[in-house]
Design a binder for these strands. Structure first.
Lengths: 216, 216
DNA sequence: GTATGTGAAACCGTTCACAGCA
DNA sequence: TGCTGTGAACGGTTTCACATAC
């Protein structure tokens, strides 16, 4: 935690390193080198070392990194030492998929409230939680200490949902609606836009013939 | 189409401009300025102009851009003048969500084959298409001229699915499995990793207090 | 010998500021 | 006058290469 600006890309990669380390740890691997990690997530070894160097010195020269230790550090850096309850707006197919998404629970994220204003969905059960009307979201946010909201409603309703979240002091939003939300600067937003991802592919298919590389 | 390298971020934004233009066009808007576009997608006007400049001169000085024309150009640049049939592997919740995802069809993408090797899913109907066994995928890829594959299976099965796609000359893969796929350089891959997105949020919540900005 | 940690260099993308044109 | 198009400046990220430490 220096007074240095840390590139977002570094955080993204750190998250990937962390998951790889979890995998290695489960397999009983004790030590990894920066090249091992690099190969595992598809970046350069120098990049791995630079990324880690933002946060401290975790390795041993001539040896590498202790898997368990580095895993622990990455989790701590990413703020994953405690669970993050989340509120989900939208109980459609996407919402259902997110609710049951294994990858979330594996990393300490859990959707503790699902909200929708479609009467045919309210009362339904997704996994082990029930869909509640949107108007119940504020109370849930406060009583369950929810800091992160997920928007998985159609574009039309997205800003409305965002506004409700904002009014109730949500700190961060993961938005799946393909529109630019109007969000104040003190609230974090990240968008997941599936069509954009596909269009990057079609562009490349069309103009570059075929070149690989994964910047994102 | 110059001999200039075009930043991936430019393509990402182009895709967003394109969708905004569609929206404006449907509303009967005739002309937009770079500032209008910039505001609509949350970037700077200079950025919009730079991005467009990679591909030509589409505007009129002192006036702006013709919405219909620019929409047409962006679609063409992105390779969206013809439909892109896609094969989906994985008929779980995520697969189902992707199948019924409106945003795809709106932009010319359509999933024309869904494959899974879970016997309880094969034969099921998602929307208007049926889930087929994974072994039927090769034939579908060839007979339907599929160039893009989507992987929405659990991490364990992802590489296997990828290998099948590769063996059948898929040109691009959109991967939702949170692992680094082993893919040759001549095949395009983009990963959608939901946990990573969330961990970027938790990192920022923890260390930056609250700062906005959407780099991705 | 081997692999980390790190300044310096190279590279890339964004912003600036203004020339060019309707 | 107003807004586009663009070379140049800027800032930030990645790569390089080597000193450092085990």
């Amino acid at each position: 935690m220096k007074a240095v600006k840390i590139p977002e890309a570094t955080i993204t990669r750190l998250s990937m390193y962390s998951r790889l380390l979890e995998w290695l740890d489960r397999r009983g691997v004790i030590t990894v080198s920066s090249s091992d990690i690099a190969e595992g997530v598809g970046v350069s070894p120098a990049q791995v070392r630079k990324d880690l160097a933002y946060f401290g010195e975790f390795g041993t020269r001539g040896v590498g990194y202790n898997v368990k230790d580095l895993l622990h550090y990455t989790m701590k850096i990413l703020g994953l030492t405690h669970p993050w309850p989340m509120a989900l707006a939208g109980a459609g197919n996407l919402g259902t998929a997110l609710c049951t998404h294994h990858g979330f629970r594996d990393r300490g994220f859990s959707i503790v409230g699902v909200f929708d204003n479609d009467l045919t969905k309210i009362g339904k059960r997704i996994g082990d939680i029930m869909v509640h009307p949107l108007e119940d979201m504020p109370e849930a946010i406060h009583s369950l200490g929810i800091k992160i909201g997920i928007i998985a409603v159609p574009p039309r309703g997205a800003q409305e949902v965002a506004d409700i979240m904002l009014k109730n002091n949500i700190a961060a939003i993961l938005n799946f609606a393909p529109i630019a939300l109007n969000i104040p600067d003190n609230v974090l937003v990240r968008n997941v836009d599936l069509s954009v991802k596909l269009e990057v592919l079609t562009f490349n298919l069309k103009y570059r013939g075929s070149v690989a590389g994964e910047p994102d």
